[in-house]
Nucleic acid binder design. Structure first.
Lengths: 335, 335
DNA sequence: TATTTATCCGGTAACGTTTACATTTCTTTT
DNA sequence: AAAAGAAATGTAAACGTTACCGGATAAATA
């Protein structure tokens, strides 16, 4: 079906080794024959087989990217950083979406491994994959992005989520809030757990106790932010402020409040994480803890290339921690 | 570095053909040796080389997906439909983001071709790639998604964009609007051109003339919706309604109006396309022409598999046209 | 002109699989 | 118990490249 290098060789009356030389512009070929071969390739629309090349060169120029949810704008933004930086390195990205499903995460890891990607960047749902990766950690460069795994072997680049949780909570407490709900992510999520830590730390520093009843888990989706908020409000144990797992969840929180006629920020203050583009809409003006999304991706690629360029051997574990930034908009108010 | 089938063969004391049989659970192998081999594979963490397999089987179980902008929520939604349906078929998706750049589109096409993906689904910026595809159209299944190319050879699945443009305009005219701005996409975009057609058709049917000055192009981004709107308003030729290229642009339009103190829908009515999740936020309530995003993706995969399963030969050009739907929310008002 | 040295090109062995064909081993039948 | 047939395994050729090695031709030196 597809033309091969041998077909081109016949057309050009040369050996197929020569064709290969022309295609890879080696210096072991005369300019003349090279041009002859190249024009023939153009004419007959020859497309080199990357599979075959990959087999012999043992390289794919591909890195795998595993993300939980491309419909959450945070992740495409990170992906953009990854793709951009990878393209600069002449690498391509194989993007896999897990929908927060650990099974799919595992199966994608296997897939990427079988495809011999040269590195894997993963924004993992939990630490469960870590044990899995332990088997491979010496075989293939891996870097976690967005959350820091509780394992001292894996490279990662993440926002300081403890700090993020702390900043959000501290801000609210200083605004006079005490009854603060925390609608977090899944209980297994590292970023969630870290933010909870920061949440508790802030309370501790201010010498007050958080209301444990107001700490809830979500699945990181808008709908669950919406549902949990409705539930919270109906319970009549209404908080004066809500910290949401991320901006998408926060949007769900706002939706619920709007529907139930609760004024933001007058009755309830709301704060999110990530600073997705839709948080800055004039009608929304969500106060949030921003992450440097593009940089997260970009740096993840940079660190994975440290290992790739070192022929897969890594000397030290690389940990890059980016600072979160409080973006004050209009969903929080002094009590 | 990585273990091969031959290593496993040695460990199991069998030929490597037998190992292959065990791995592909062929019936030409005894259950006993099969289990023996499989357990060895598990123990030593063997990962079959998909590259080598692809070379001999001439199949990659991958389809390529080219999209202009994964940071516009419309596209991830379509991508989800594609990935979901592809996964059902046991295929994987190689996602490429072009940032509305035709050069990158072309280079990604080449890349995917070289990687021997079994089909390409493309949400193209324009028809320019079509000429390029013409060379390949008999070699590889291609389906356009989201817009219908002006070429009778390519399969596509798209929303009826003429209708979409018509519905939006008709709705506004019936609401009493005459001075309607159309902040479209790029001039080369098919979906843009079709919607303009629908726009003009609606005017025609109502026997009024559109103000040509109010038809503008954007780059499909929020920022340009924002800037063009500001420009329009400053020009003092203020429209009573604005149709935006998509919801993201519409959000930019709203942003500009908010900033300039223009009331929506009291002073200006606004309508978008796509119905992205953020259009339905209570604070936004954007009236829009919805596309069936997930279905668009799902059906694109279905149609590409018609050709793939037919060994690449296609009998007839498949054209699937989905209906747009007017979602009335709160950004449009009777004049 | 004869010899050395670049320069260019051809032949062939890899790369890690699958698969058709050949061969061995085990059942079954007589 | 021998022959035939079925089942399990081995052998080797493909898949489309790249890369090494050696040979031929052209260029440079003596």
């Amino acid at each position: 079906m597809n033309l091969t290098i041998k077909d081109i060789a016949k057309l050009a009356n040369v050996s197929y080794a020569t064709v290969s030389r022309a295609l890879n512009d080696s210096k072991e070929i005369s300019e003349k024959t090279k041009q002859k071969i190249l024009t023939i390739c153009k004419e007959v629309n020859y497309s080199p087989n990357a599979i075959a090349r990959g087999l012999v060169k043992n390289t794919t120029h591909t890195i795998g990217l595993i993300m939980p949810d491309i419909s959450n704008p945070f992740f495409p933004e990170v992906a953009l950083g990854i793709e951009g930086e990878a393209a600069r390195m002449d690498y391509n990205v194989f993007l896999c979406n897990t929908n927060y499903n650990i099974k799919r995460e595992l199966s994608y890891i296997n897939l990427l491994l079988e495809r011999r990607v040269e590195g894997i960047i993963i924004s993992s749902v939990s630490d469960e994959t870590i044990n899995y990766f332990n088997k491979y950690i010496d075989h293939i460069p891996i870097v976690y992005v967005g959350s820091n795994p509780k394992n001292d072997k894996c490279d990662y680049v993440a926002t300081d989520n403890i700090k993020a949780g702390y900043i959000a909570t501290d801000y609210l407490i200083k605004l006079g809030h005490k009854k603060i709900a925390f609608i977090g992510g899944t209980s297994v999520s590292n970023s969630h757990c870290d933010r909870i830590k920061g949440f508790k730390k802030a309370f501790q520093e201010h010498n007050i106790l958080p209301d444990i009843e107001l700490i809830r888990n979500s699945d990181f989706k808008r709908k669950s932010g919406y549902q949990i908020t409705k539930f919270l409000i109906k319970e009549k144990n209404i908080p004066t402020a809500i910290i949401a797992a991320n901006d998408v969840v926060a949007l769900g929180v706002i939706e619920a409040c709007d529907e139930m006629g609760i004024l933001i920020p007058d009755t309830i203050s709301i704060i999110g994480f990530d600073d997705i583009p839709y948080a800055s809409l004039p009608k929304i003006m969500l106060t949030t803890i921003a992450q440097s999304k593009y940089d997260l991706g970009k740096i993840a690629v940079e660190t994975i290339f440290k290992t790739i360029n070192n022929k897969g051997k890594k000397n030290t574990v690389i940990k890059k921690i980016l600072d979160p930034e409080l973006i004050i908009r209009k969903t929080c108010k002094h009590l």
